[in-house]
């Protein structure tokens, strides 16, 4: 779910931060730049993990700030393929389900990636028809886990072990 990413960046240090110790100032500036933002191909930045090295401090002609070459590690939220995540359903539409992990809510599970037999009910909710003809509904605020090729609610598994295994077998 979480990985570290090592990054090197030429960081201009704005003069108003010069009254702080250098490391604190760099950290504050890095947090302003990266925190809570999605970096392309890396994921969502959760936190600045550590600063590994600071070099330089050059003042380029015509600039009012010193530029440091900083090497640091960011704590990124980036799930890998096949990872299990547990989140809450925050909504649904004709394309699929929207799932929220509290801090990250941009997860969409399209209908064709749900388990075999999942279809939309008349009232618009998504449901799974089991082999015995039971209808299991996916409701807002239900908890479930996302898998590479399917989705199930924790409650289905907790409620009935047998049924849980059946759901698994259908994948």
């Amino acid at each position: 779910m979480f990985v570290l990413s090592q990054i090197e960046h030429n960081l201009p240090m704005p003069p108003h931060l010069l009254n702080q110790p250098l490391v604190d100032a760099i950290k504050a500036e890095l947090e302003r730049l990266f925190l809570d933002k999605v970096v392309a191909n890396l994921g969502l930045c959760v936190s600045v993990y550590d600063i590994r090295s600071v070099e330089g401090g050059f003042i380029f002609p015509g600039e009012g700030c010193s530029t440091y070459k900083v090497s640091f590690r960011l704590l990124m939220f980036r799930p890998f393929v096949g990872e299990v995540l547990v989140g809450k359903i925050s909504g649904y539409d004709e394309k699929g389900l929207h799932v929220s992990l509290d801090f990250f809510s941009d997860i969409c599970i399209p209908g064709h990636l749900m388990q075999y037999g999942t279809a939309r009910a008349l009232d618009g909710r998504w449901m799974l028809k089991t082999e015995d003809g039971d209808e299991l509904y996916l409701d807002i605020d239900d908890e479930g886990s996302i898998k590479g090729d399917g989705l199930g609610l924790l409650a289905w598994w907790a409620a009935d072990e047998e049924e849980g295994e059946e759901v698994e077998a259908e994948e």
């Binding site: 779910m1 979480f2 990985v3 570290l4 990413s5 090592q6 990054i7 090197e8 960046h9 030429n10 191909n41 890396l42 959760v46 090497s71 590690r73 704590l75």
Partner: peptide, 16 residues
């Protein structure tokens, strides 16, 4: 910005 290592190690939820 230069990405030196996109994956410098996985962390478990506990470590985070």
């Amino acid at each position: 910005m230069k990405i030196e290592k996109a994956n410098a190690g996985f962390l478990t939820n506990f470590e985070v």
